[in-house]
Write a protein that binds this DNA or RNA. Sequence first.
DNA 1: AATTTGCGCAACCGAATAGTTGCATTTATA
DNA 2: TATAAATGCAACTATTCGGTTGCGCAAATT
Lengths: 101, 101
Amino acid sequence: MKRDIFHAIADPTRRAIITLLALQAMTPNALAEHFNTSRQAVSKHIQILAECDVVTQKQSGREIYYHFNAKKMKEVDEWIERFRQLWDDKFNQLDDLLNDL
Amino acid sequence: MKRDIFHAIADPTRRAIITLLALQAMTPNALAEHFNTSRQAVSKHIQILAECDVVTQKQSGREIYYHFNAKKMKEVDEWIERFRQLWDDKFNQLDDLLNDL
DNA sequence: AATTTGCGCAACCGAATAGTTGCATTTATA
DNA sequence: TATAAATGCAACTATTCGGTTGCGCAAATT
């Protein structure tokens, strides 16, 4: 796969789309209303998000509802994870708490 | 600023550079040895990372050591944060624990 | 049945990207 | 002092990106 999640979230418009879809599934037209670009431009972003499984689609008649797949964000989180202790000790405390459970 | 941290981590080579620099500060030449590209290409990536404060430089004679600035990763983490509860309940437990402290 | 709506797909365009090579400058070394 | 090493900067190139417009098709509406 050529595109990965890091490429997907690199674009501000795509991050906005993700945020919107996290609140509720939407159609391309509904999404496009939130931006100053054409529906086709939004559709291209959706396509990129779909390519790396950040969103999934669900057809309903002639409409297509796109759903946010939160699990994919885990990949980013796991990469960030290794740096977390370098910037904040709070998470070390959390790790200790977890180990005690 | 045109480039942001999300753009910085979009490129696989730049993520590798970040990972290397997180272990220890290095010079462009030393970094370039880890990749199949020219030193100049690596320097370009470093420049982008420097532009958005992911790395800082420290001159030492004719060598320049680049240091990783972990704090910048916080910005990514804070954006991911809002999705965390959507994929994993473990972090909700953690939040509860924190509130009890 | 005719028309409107929602959508994907393709072609095109200017700007940015990631790489290259070549060169100038400063610092270390012989 | 002459040379080698480390780096940044500029010019060039092929590719990708984010956007546009135009189109065709299937589903809803009239």
